[in-house]
Design a protein around this nucleic acid. Structure first.
Lengths: 192, 192
DNA sequence: CAGAGATGATAGATTGATCTATCAAAAATA
DNA sequence: TATTTTTGATAGATCAATCTATCATCTCTG
């Protein structure tokens, strides 16, 4: 009666976060009432699981950070050929867009210092890898790693938006982003 | 007493819109009270010039559309060599960022059907020019003009953000965006 | 089945923002 | 100077959203 119900609570919280995600993707300004309705629970219950809208958004934000961290680490471990690193990153991230991209436009999330700090930590290994690829002349060296990665993110966001709007499928999106970035930053490639 | 005061009204409205722009760049959620304060007028006077927050945002939006239209047309008229078209567009747009980019994230503006329609009209000639450049093999042909232009916009937004954050100067931003886009979409170029 | 805990509906307190109304003071204009 | 217009301050109406409190009902679990 106090022992193994933590997981049950956690599961329900996750269900709520999933519902919030699915609604906020469609309508970023959705109220807590609408989110509760989408989750199939009452507003009172929502507040029993989440203290405030700000906390809810931060939960979503940190969950997204976990997804990203996992994606980065899994690609890092793959040990493909060095020039496959960014393409693999893109392929891995494309299907995760719907859990992430709507957050990047949310003021609560992207003005939060903790989130900012967490994201800096998460992306640090990616930047280092990019710098390494630059030293190996696989990526161009005349712009800093931060620019390379920021542009890649921007193009991913764009692809996610177009996927959400039905203008692009997941597989063609990955190919498009990959070729755009490879040509934008790769060294000595011909067009694909 | 009714004749030539239209221009005076217009001038004051413009001053208000300028003040709103300068504040909203810093703080996109600024209230009307804060905007009035920034403009150095009372809230009542603000409402005499602008009916509602929504109308204010739309004024800003349409003003930004005018700026864009003018930029596109001026580059169109320049009659440079064809491959200079996109670089010229980028150079022209970079200094205009602070009057435009904060709007792209505003829900009122970018969910408005009129704005959407207006922007489609404005950017149509750009898309056509890009298609032409693709036929001339100056730009790669394996992705549609809309993708090319959307990516260019995204990279411009990114540069604007970094300029606002002091991470980039206007001139280096233009060069960075230009080389990124040229390499991303140009045909048969070496790295610069 | 009995009791503990969780839930949903509802009512309402609180807050922050938008917008209106009013009026005396200031500014422009004749 | 007299008059008309514009302005700023203030007060307050309205509204939407967040969050709290309560309570009857439902659902587990023992």
């Amino acid at each position: 009666m106090e022992k193994e119900q933590m997981p049950a609570k956690q599961a329900k919280l996750n269900a709520i976060l999933d519902a919030a995600t699915s609604l906020l993707v469609e309508k970023p300004t959705a109220s807590l009432n609408e989110i509760a309705a989408r989750a199939g629970i009452g507003i009172a219950t929502l507040h029993r699981y989440v203290e405030s809208r700000e906390q809810l958004m931060l939960h979503l934000g940190f969950r997204a950070m976990d997804v990203l961290r996992e994606a980065f680490e899994s690609v890092e471990k793959e040990a493909y050929a060095a020039e496959r690193y960014i393409p693999r990153l893109i392929e891995t991230l494309i299907p995760l867009g719907d859990r992430i991209y709507f957050l990047a436009r949310d003021a609560t999330v992207d003005n939060n210092p903790d989130m900012e700090h967490t994201y800096r930590d998460i992306r640090q290994p990616v930047l280092e890898k990019i710098e390494l690829l630059q030293q190996q002349r696989i990526l161009r060296q005349d712009c800093d790693a931060e620019w390379v990665w920021s542009v890649t993110e921007s193009v991913l966001f764009l692809a996610w938006e177009r996927m959400a709007g039905g203008h692009l499928t997941a597989s063609s999106a990955a190919a498009l982003v990959e070729s755009t970035v490879r040509r934008g930053f790769g060294v000595g490639e011909r067009q694909s």
